[in-house]
């Protein structure tokens, strides 16, 4: 066992952990922070993304001992005083999820991206969340949600700057002509 001291979502913890304990398992099983999920367990899907000292990481690919002395933020710690974080709110409003399993990781990766680039284009959002897989949405509404959140966080409630065509929770119609043609 190795002794670690970490701050997680603003609270301090001193715990004994086995060195082989992965950060995601420490968060879920020892601290009960089950908002962070295990997806693929192969470092690919990003569902387990949390922030360590402000940087997004895949918590299935970090040992808890490596977070000793660090400040960890999970999806459970991004909201303030009962208010959702703007990115959480945007995923809700823009329908940026279906089954919701990838959502905690998507949101944590998106917050990291927006910290670096407060006004990303669609392409920059897609690249920014390339480490996170979603098997339901086809990403369209996730991209909208991130851009909507970006606008909100820049203090501009009216939506993304570059192309104003994004309406809340609008159904993606890109495939519609094709579908209509088949009907």
């Amino acid at each position: 066992m190795t002794r670690i001291s970490v701050r997680v979502d603003g609270a301090s913890y001193d715990d004994d952990v086995e060195p082989r304990t992965l950060l995601v398992h420490y968060l879920r099983e020892q601290l009960g922070k089950v908002g962070t999920v295990v997806g693929c367990d192969t470092s690919n899907c990003g569902a387990c993304t949390v922030h360590v000292d402000g940087e997004a990481v895949k918590s299935c690919t970090v040992f808890a001992v490596q977070a000793d002395g660090a400040e960890v933020t999970t999806i459970e710690g991004v909201g303030q005083g009962g208010e959702l974080h703007p990115v959480q709110k945007a995923f809700h409003e823009m329908h940026g999820l279906q089954c919701g399993y990838c959502t905690p990781g998507m949101i944590m990766a998106s917050i990291d991206l927006l910290g670096e680039n407060p006004d990303p284009s669609d392409d920059e959002v897609r690249e920014g969340i390339e480490g996170n897989l979603c098997r339901c949405t086809g990403y369209q509404n996730i991209v909208r949600a991130v851009r909507h959140a970006a606008a909100d966080m820049r203090g501009n409630g009216s939506g993304p700057s570059a192309n104003g065509h994004v309406a809340p929770a609008e159904v993606d119609t890109a495939a519609a002509p094709h579908v209509v043609g088949q009907a």
Binding site: G46, K58, T61, V62, A109, E130, N132
Partner: peptide, 9 residues
């Protein structure tokens, strides 16, 4: 290389 999470570590 990889994605932003992997590049951070």
């Amino acid at each position: 290389v990889a994605d932003r999470q992997v590049r951070h570590r």
